[in-house]
Amino acid sequence: MLVVIPAWNEAANLHGVVGELRGARPDDDLLVVDDGSTDGTAELARRLDCRLVELPFHLGYGAAVQAGVKYGLRRGYPVAVTFDGDGQHDPADVEPLVEAVRQGADVALGSRFLSPGAYHGGLFRRAGRRLFSLLLRALTGLRLTDPTSGLKALGPRGQTLFALARFPDRFPDADALVLARRARLALAERPARMRQSHNRHSMHGGGRAVAYTFNMFLSLLVAAAGRESDLRG
């Protein structure tokens, strides 16, 4: 199977991430998607002997993940796992997700709220996640505890959905799950530990949180009310 590692200026963290993954999962193919880094992330990925998709300029997290998923789809991987390049995910949590896909899930999510005593983020993050959980439940009837999780395992149908031209390509979170539900994909959730990200540009941090919440809210409504044709090629 394929592990997609989106990385934007992660030269400081990539070594550790790849090392951990290799240690825990020696049989997986590791694909680093370099999202227009300027700190030699691509060079490092090459030196670490990873597969590499090098975007010509910075496209953003969602588009980087999507590029990796397209790579997996074209090579016919039965499972593609998305695993953030900043070291916040734990390779030990990958196997339950893969197992969920083998048992029929099209998209399996790692949730930090199903694992006890883990990092839950600050007050605002928790409130935001709760809000989106509730919204997601209202829109789809799904009870997912951690829709913003970046740790996912995708079966072939999940990969096809993530590769759609009109797939939400900023930060595919709750909106992606609404789309998955509309496309009648089977979703599953498994516990996952999330470590405090050592990322300088954590994507939900600081003043961008408000803009993020607003964008996600709009994107959710678009995903819920979008045209049927968005679910096809």
Binding site: R51, E54, L55, P56, L59, A63, Q66, A67, Y71
Partner: peptide, 11 residues
Amino acid sequence: ELAQEVALLRA
């Protein structure tokens, strides 16, 4: 889409 395609083809 083009940027992704270029990157995938280059890979």
